[in-house]
Simulated assay, not measured.
Amino acid sequence: MIRPVDDETMVGGQLYPERIADLGVKMIVNNRPDQEEPGQPTSAEIEAAAAAAGIGYRHIPVAGGFSDAQVQAMIEALSAADGPVLAFCKSGMRSIYLWALARARMGDGADALLEKGAAAGYDLSPIRGYLG
């Protein structure tokens, strides 16, 4: 399920290459490591489908916590997008967390981020202390 977070960002669970062309986004951010589970499309497969549809693509795999480099890479992806961004992982949770951490560093307030997360159906309170 893809959920809007704000006018510029959506998050969701696993994407499949055959669905990418119809998403209406300008950038896809893949937060899943390859081979996280059997049958999952690879980053290369998703990147190829994105390229064929004229959509930008970034692979920022997250497993076991968030690093400064991953947050910075998300900032760069959000900043480079010329239109809506869709970030995905298995459930959308890592993606919304990484989005919130990036947006906090970009100057968004913690309360606004918590509200946007809640409106999209995600609880950001576990990372509240990292949002400023």
Rank of each mutant, 00 (worst) to 15 (best):
S91E: 03
M1H: 03
A77L: 01
M27K: 12
I20D: 09
I46T: 04
Y97D: 12
A102I: 10
W99S: 14
Q40P: 03
A102P: 01
P61V: 05
G54H: 01
G13W: 13
K90N: 13
D108N: 15
G39P: 05
P4A: 15
Q14P: 13
G12N: 07
M1A: 06
W99C: 14
R103F: 08
A119W: 04
G54A: 03
D123P: 09
A81Y: 05
P17C: 11
L113A: 04
S95F: 11
A53T: 05
F88T: 03
R19H: 13
L113F: 00
Q72N: 06
I2L: 13
R94E: 01
R94H: 06
A69S: 11
G132L: 02
C89E: 02
A49T: 14
M93T: 15
S91Q: 04
A80H: 10
L131I: 03
P126Y: 02
E18N: 12
Q72F: 08
L86P: 08
Q35Y: 08
R94F: 03
C89L: 02
R94P: 09
P126G: 02
G129I: 06
K26Y: 10
A51V: 08
R58W: 13
S125W: 04
F88E: 07
G83L: 02
G13I: 14
S95G: 13
N30D: 14
E37Q: 14
G12I: 07
M27T: 13
A48W: 07
L78K: 02
A110P: 00
G121E: 10
V5Q: 07
L131S: 07
H59N: 03
I20R: 11
A81L: 06
A63W: 13
F66T: 00
P4W: 15
R32H: 07
V29A: 13
A118Y: 00
Y57R: 12
D111F: 01
Y57N: 09
P41M: 07
Q40F: 05
M1Y: 00
M93C: 14
V25M: 10
A100S: 13
V5C: 10
A51H: 12
F66L: 01
A73W: 08
D7M: 14
D34H: 13
V29D: 11
V29T: 15
R128I: 00
F88K: 08
T42K: 14
D34R: 12
E47H: 14
